[in-house]
Design a protein around this nucleic acid. Sequence first.
DNA 1: GAATTAATGCTCAAATCGAGCATTATGAAA
DNA 2: TTTCATAATGCTCGATTTGAGCATTAATTC
Lengths: 352, 352
Amino acid sequence: MTMNIPLRREDVSDMTGVRTSPGAVSKGATRVEIGLSAAIVSVCRDEPMIMCVPTNVDGALVDVLPSGPFSPTEHRTLDTGLRTWVAEQTDLDLGYVEQLYTFGDRGRHAQPFDQTPHTVSIGYLALTRQPLESDDAQDGAVWKSWYDFFPWEDWRQGKPALLTDEIEPRLNEWCERVDTEINPYRTSSRKQRVRVAFGIDGGAWDEERVLDRYELLYEAGLIEEARRDGREAALTWGPVPRFGTAMQFDHRRILATGIGRLRGKLKYRPVVFEMMRDEFTLFELQKTVEAILGPHLHKQNFRRLVESAGLVEPTGDVRAKTGGRPAKLYRFRREVLLERPAPGVRVKPGRA
Amino acid sequence: MTMNIPLRREDVSDMTGVRTSPGAVSKGATRVEIGLSAAIVSVCRDEPMIMCVPTNVDGALVDVLPSGPFSPTEHRTLDTGLRTWVAEQTDLDLGYVEQLYTFGDRGRHAQPFDQTPHTVSIGYLALTRQPLESDDAQDGAVWKSWYDFFPWEDWRQGKPALLTDEIEPRLNEWCERVDTEINPYRTSSRKQRVRVAFGIDGGAWDEERVLDRYELLYEAGLIEEARRDGREAALTWGPVPRFGTAMQFDHRRILATGIGRLRGKLKYRPVVFEMMRDEFTLFELQKTVEAILGPHLHKQNFRRLVESAGLVEPTGDVRAKTGGRPAKLYRFRREVLLERPAPGVRVKPGRA
DNA sequence: GAATTAATGCTCAAATCGAGCATTATGAAA
DNA sequence: TTTCATAATGCTCGATTTGAGCATTAATTC
């Protein structure tokens, strides 16, 4: 966990031993560009969707997240910068927005390694209501299922065969492979990381570890982006297996971060409602949660939970044509945000 | 929650409606400097401490977090950049490090508003073991109690009088004040934000909302940094009440973010152990948790929780001279990280 | 009008949680 | 030595909170 960095001793201390402005950032430091990207999530017909702007790169269409550079002269804050770019590229006026992470690794952004100026990439998660069918393809932006990019995360039908048949064997091979390389003692580390992230032998699948899994697949060279970035591990696999659709730059990494964060946050903050229409049935709510989290929830317990937590209140209306008895309609009780410290749909997997 | 940003329509779409590189960040975008700062936390004698580098600014000593500019040519990642600066300024070789947030607001960084180049500030949280008494003042860096900077967060002796006597009245005044200003309809918004963040009338104090509270105090001009930054609200208070010690730039904001994050994370990840020595008694562990979270925990239940979760194992030794019966010594069971998805000291306040 | 399909209501046992009492092992005081 | 104060540790018990399943109700469909 610890890392040793060669020290550069060039600090300016005065005679008293008190440093003069160690935090002053202004003496000729390198400047970098900042990229802002948004993983915009919605759920449409029980499918978690993310907003993409397919873009022509060298003649091929590549999926890109709505994004653009931060311009301190034009954007008052990072947040407004992001909203501006998203509005331009997708015509969406974002509501809920949350910063995810700032990535700064060299070589994970530009295609030609280190050819462009260094970019630091700030990823955001945004949630929107279910898009109407009509305004589906506005301005070149499209909604895509997030499982297009992460098929191994789709446990709605149980464990995906892709994991057992394709991914796990290759990851195991990659774990063994270290022996022949430089650090034999790191084998166990790789093995353990894979074990924890993918819940291999004994471990449970933790639906929140989306980024861990993506990063391991990247490191193992099993992801198109790894080959694109010139990762050596990627060259050892012959024809690269394409697990999921690739994205430009580090956008799939940002998306992985967003999915993981959303899956976690759902459990302790009432963020699902950012993706629901004003009125909904409890089953629709459950389906939305399940689209994001994966496993099936126990229906009766789910409604007990949601109702007893005071997250919703009935509107008085009902929705007919459900295929059975009509369902009561509910709305989100915004007041809970003021009442309890951390209300959320704290769910655990159950049976149907 | 929604924000309307004036659109700038200057994007480059080709004839097919497919955009050409909306995510390409390289066409002459403004570059900025990136500041890396670390809130390094430890607990010493039941007091949560953070590492400061007091710095001479215009003749006065100001508290500064270990920090420095990110240099993409010298630092392979943001993370290594941070570790390098910390090692230089404090001689600490950091273990646990976690990114907190990236702040980009104009006017929150430089003292003379907008005089220096624009800086985006990335804050980190780092945890270290209890520092020995001896190496206390290494190289000009010192440990300070984090409650020096956030006295209103110190609920270890019950609700601080500072809140009831000083802060709440002024915040209430600030809430009312809006009527006389531009947006009358925002009154309720201010009131509600204050109500939720500070748990006024009926609401519970949520120990995790450290940043919310700091930001409100800043907005209300009740914080020295607000005056420094030229916030107009700060000018209306006559002699500014100094609630807690100020820090340079946005460092107190980063610290607030770190405290909030740590208080939250403690409950679902075993991060306390990053601050414990190899061997410790369960009561020492509890004291450390309480130093960070505040309220007293029920001793017997705490140990039941920690033991039954498999977070610790006895070493076999005991510590004498506890003032009573000798206490068994325990060590952290690192294996839990591999076993359960999200083990943590999920505590709820109780009685002594 | 019977079968089918959901929505909704209700029960019950297991697990967890919050509190408090009881017991044990030291060092210090009498 | 004995007694006392102080912690550490063990254990119990009722109140909730969960996990799971059965039962009932109200539409749609055949």
